[in-house]
Design a protein around this nucleic acid. Sequence first.
DNA 1: AGAGTATTGTGTATTATTCTCAATAAGTGA
DNA 2: TCACTTATTGAGAATAATACACAATACTCT
Lengths: 150, 150
Amino acid sequence: MAYTANSLKAELNERGWRLTPQREVILNVFQNLAEGHHLSAEDLYNELQSQGDPISLSTIYRTVKLMARMGILRELEFAEGHKHYELNQPYPHHHHHLICVKCNKTIEFKSDSILKLGSKTSEKEGFHLLDCQLLIHAICPQCQRSLLPG
Amino acid sequence: MAYTANSLKAELNERGWRLTPQREVILNVFQNLAEGHHLSAEDLYNELQSQGDPISLSTIYRTVKLMARMGILRELEFAEGHKHYELNQPYPHHHHHLICVKCNKTIEFKSDSILKLGSKTSEKEGFHLLDCQLLIHAICPQCQRSLLPG
DNA sequence: AGAGTATTGTGTATTATTCTCAATAAGTGA
DNA sequence: TCACTTATTGAGAATAATACACAATACTCT
Ligand SMILES: [Mn+2]
Ligand SMILES: [Mn+2]
Ligand SMILES: [Zn+2]
Ligand SMILES: [Zn+2]
């Protein structure tokens, strides 16, 4: 069940917030993003720029944060010093990430048992689940061979 | 199997690196850290300061990064804008985190099935596993009640 | 349409983390 | 034990991601 402009508006208004063209366009970018892709704030800024919908960096930071807290986007912290975002999709699109801490190569994989564990755990503690992600930090085959320090 | 000064030295030297008093002291702080505690770089800086082993912030940042890449420490990114570190312990101490994205309340929980999945996945891709952590972003009971924006 | 207020864009501030570089000291082998 | 090589440290400056302040704008509701 993908978001439409209307369902997004409904969810925003319910909390006393507003639907703006910026928010709608930003959500669209994520909905059209190919599988396995993740955007940083700056990526998103450039993408919007080049598709002719320029939006200020401030608004971008505010919006992705807002949408992550609504559970619309998931916030991913790989090993690069800045956050990445992607659509927070339910089963069967929900997935996890295996990351090389040296070169940032990322592999996605699925697991519904983790998703179940995430729901069960947050429910048990009375938390409202937003996102559950297994993050595997590792070193890829190529970087294992390289003798470079660090 | 906790690290001793000697085993740490062996692992460092094996890679052409050196054991320094700073590295030894930093590892000790983490080994003496109570369960459920996590230190930011600044926390660690202050802790060392007050225990009479002052170490520069530069060295602290370099050391925790080094130890994370060696698999000695695990790097945790909660929702506060800076990293936290804790000892990377194997089963049965290995655990995961449920975090409130609004107030940062953190609850730890264990799961050996995730640990297995992490090993299996990285092995399958030929990666050398460093750490595997399930991160559950959620909103705690108290913050659900609060009507504050954000 | 108008009131009330959430949101935007611009510019600036903050702050975690990295970088630079000269001084120091760990490892190694004679 | 003593040099020799070079990894490491500490101090400070630099960087870069993100947050903030505020006046102008534009949603939403009546
Ligand atoms: Mn992904
Ligand atoms: Mn922990
Ligand atoms: Zn790699
Ligand atoms: Zn909370």
